[in-house]
Design a protein around this nucleic acid. Structure first.
Lengths: 143, 143
DNA sequence: TATATATAGTTGTATTATACAACTATATAA
DNA sequence: TTATATAGTTGTATAATACAACTATATATA
């Protein structure tokens, strides 16, 4: 690995990261109690406010049928609630319930704790720069 | 997003990255021609030399039955070949074929090109540091 | 040496996440 | 008023995966 050029290393490490992160999300060692899909969905609603299925699907790059089922599952667990868009009868809007907020908060806390521990030896500058670069990478990667 | 602390941003961006990278890998816009699993398997054999199913499974954090099928599929496509371990008749070892090396090389090239383009505006230092931090993160994340 | 146990890998089966297609309900355009 | 477009749901197929049962081989033990 030492001989790689920087971009090769980035590619290598990110590919490895994805494989293992997906594993971790499905293993008993996963962070928190929510499925990754549930976590992302709740987080989106919590951050951006009520959203419809289509909007969520676009954000996650999933088919709306998939998100429709994910949302239905969260609704059944009473983590989100559905209400009709007064301006358009076809649209279902979802919002996070009190319970959903609790669960999200708890999971986020655990995830942050893990990331705090991972980066505990990093300098403030390193953390800052890493975050910046991730944002840039995400923007450039998906357009 | 601007209000987040650095670690929160790292958690946020990495979570987002995984979701979208998984999508990209399955979409028609994916990089290269190999499945992600095939790419990783070929890459491992190419880097570390002949390996058995168990070793690959441990490296990828997959069940050996899963890797056994992945390897069988690559064998059928003649990208890898199987040979018996002379020292242990139970063990199948795999190695990359000439064709496999070609395909791997072609895919790696495309992936690197993409990552080159993503990081084209980054300074050499930034690339270097990003790679270093990813390595550190991967090590700390999965032990 | 003969038998019991452990290991490597394969194959059968169930589950889950996903996409696509068919469908329903509603909205908009002609 | 009818045709078309859109939002979402539900049916169905596929693919990736884990776990369990099994086969073949190796190692340990009586």
């Amino acid at each position: 690995m030492e001989k790689r050029n920087p971009v090769e290393r980035i590619e290598y490490e990110l590919t490895t990261f994805i494989r293992r992160a997906v594993y971790l999300d499905n293993s008993e060692k996963k962070i928190g109690n929510l499925e990754r899909s549930a976590y992302l969905l709740l987080r989106h609603l919590d951050e951006f406010g009520p959203a419809r299925v289509k909007e969520l699907a676009e954000s996650f790059k999933l088919d709306i049928s998939t998100v429709s089922r994910q949302a239905a599952a969260l609704e059944a667990k009473e983590l989100i609630i559905r209400f009709s868009d007064p301006a358009d009868g076809r649209v279902s809007l979802f919002t996070v319930t009190k319970l959903g907020k609790q669960k999200l908060k708890a999971d986020k806390k655990m995830r942050l704790k893990r990331f705090e521990s991972i980066t505990s030896e990093w300098s403030a500058d390193e953390k800052q720069l890493f975050g910046d670069l991730l944002i840039r990478m995400n923007e450039a990667f998906f357009d």
